[in-house]
Computed example of a mutant assay.
Amino acid sequence: MKKTLITLAVLAAATGVAQAQSSVVIYGTVDAGFVSERGGKDGNVNKLDSGIASASRLGFKGTEDLGSGLSALFLLESGFNVDTGAQGTGEALFGRQAYVGLSSKTTGTLTLGRQYTPIYNTLSKVADPFAAGYSGSAKNLFPANTRTSNTVLYTSPSYNGFDGDVAYTFGENAASNKIGRKIGASVGYANGPLNARVAYSNTQNDTATTETGSARNWLAAANYDFAVAKAYVAYGVNKGLNSALRNNGNADSFSYVEALPSTDSTTALLGVTVPAGPAGTVMASYIHVNDKNAANADANQFALGYSYALSKRTSTYASYAKISNKNNAGYTVGNNSNVGTGDKAFSLGVRHSF
C-alpha cells in the first residue's frame, strides 16, 4: 500500500510539472454595433456591423517550455461576423493569423506562417490613437499592408528599451523568386511614457512577363504619455506602383471617376487620447494624404471617438469620421473590419473580450 501511494504521488507530481511546462489558451473578441454611412454613390447606408473597434475573432494560442530559456509557441486565429455568424467573405478558417515558432529569452522569437507585418504593427500599436479601429481608423488613409502568408518573422528581445523585427514573405512562384516577394522590418524604442518606431515595407510588383519594380513604404511613428493626455504623431512615405492602394480596394464608391492610386505620396497623422474619468477615453486624430502625382488627389480625415470601459473585458463606444477627398480621390470611411461606402460614418457599439 505504501509503495502504491508513493507511486501515485510521483505520477501526480510529474503530471503537474508537465502541465506547468505547457499551456493552451482560448481567447477572443466579440464586437458589434450600429453604423451609419453617408456620402457614397449608393446613398445613405444604415447597418448592424461586426468588428468596428476590434475585429471579432476566436483564437487558440499555446506555449511549451523546452528548457534553458527556450520555448515552442503557436497561434491560430479565425475571424467571424457577429451580425451573421459567418466567416468573412473569402476568409480562410484561420485567415487572421496562423503560425508556429520558437522563442528564446536571450536571442528572440522566430515564427513561421500567416502573420501581421512590421509596418502594420507600427501603424496600429504606435501611430494611431484609434488602434486601427472605430470610424477613425488610420487604415482609411494609410496603406495598411496588414498581414502576409508564407512569412518568416524574427523579433528580437528588448535591449534597454530597443527592439526590432524583420519579416520575409515567400512569393512561391515557379517563374521567379521575386514575384510576390515581400520584405518588412521595424526598429523601436519604448521606455516610460515614450514609444517610438520606424518601419519599412517592400512588395515586389513583378509578374512572369513584366518587371514593374516594387512598392516601398516607410512609416515613422511615436506616442508620448503626458498622463493628462497621450499625443500621437506619424509620417509615412509611399513610393512606387501599388504603394498607396486604398483600403477599399480602389472601388468606385462615389459618383465621379476616381483618381488612380498614387505612386508618390506622403501620409501624416496627429492624434490624441484623453482620459475622461476613471473609465472613459476620448480619441481624436487628423490625417492628411499628399499625392505628389499630377492628379494631386489629396485627402484629409478628421475623427473623434469615445470609449467607456464597463469592466476589464467589456466596453461601449461611439465614433465619427469625415474624409474630404480632393481632385477625385476615392477614400472611404471604414472601421477595423469593413471599408465603408461613403466619406462620412458614425458608429455606436459594444465590445467584449475573453
Rank of each mutant, 00 (worst) to 15 (best):
A221H: 05
F302T: 14
L8P: 03
L123D: 02
G88Y: 13
T316G: 14
L260R: 13
N140A: 11
K326H: 12
Y154F: 11
S307A: 15
R246P: 07
K322N: 12
Y168F: 15
G79W: 02
S23L: 05
A321I: 04
G95D: 03
S324C: 00
K105V: 11
Y27Q: 09
R147W: 03
A12C: 14
D225E: 10
T63D: 08
A329P: 05
A208E: 14
D165P: 04
Y235T: 08
S23N: 15
W218T: 03
V237S: 03
T117V: 06
A345G: 01
V126H: 04
P193N: 12
L70H: 06
N242D: 11
L269M: 15
L11T: 13
G59D: 05
S214T: 06
V237Q: 03
S23E: 14
W218A: 00
K41W: 00
R197N: 11
H352V: 01
G16H: 12
T341C: 02
T209I: 10
S255M: 02
A234Y: 06
L310N: 07
A215L: 01
D252L: 15
S311K: 10
V333C: 08
T155G: 12
N290A: 15
D343Q: 02
A215M: 01
G16Y: 11
G85W: 07
Y286K: 06
Q21D: 15
G330C: 10
N247Q: 12
N145A: 09
N173M: 00
S149P: 02
K312S: 14
E64G: 10
S214F: 05
G101I: 06
N328W: 09
S22C: 05
K125W: 00
K322R: 15
K322W: 13
A175I: 00
S315T: 11
G271R: 04
Q97N: 07
G101L: 05
T281D: 11
R38Q: 14
A144R: 07
V166S: 00
A190I: 06
N327C: 09
F170Q: 02
G133R: 09
V82E: 02
V333L: 11
A208H: 07
Y317S: 08
F94L: 04
L76R: 08
E172F: 00
G277A: 08
T4G: 12
G133C: 10
S176T: 02
S324K: 07
N327E: 12
E91T: 12
Y331A: 08
R38F: 14
S124Q: 08
I323W: 01
S68Q: 14
Y27L: 05
Y116M: 00
V274A: 12
R114N: 08
A185T: 04
R246K: 13
V30N: 13
T169I: 06
A279K: 15
A234S: 15
N248T: 08
Y235M: 09
I52K: 07
K239W: 04
D225L: 08
N121Y: 01
N242Y: 03
A196P: 00
G136T: 11
G171F: 01
S78D: 04
D225K: 12
S176N: 08
G95L: 02
L348E: 05
K239T: 08
L304V: 15
T203M: 03
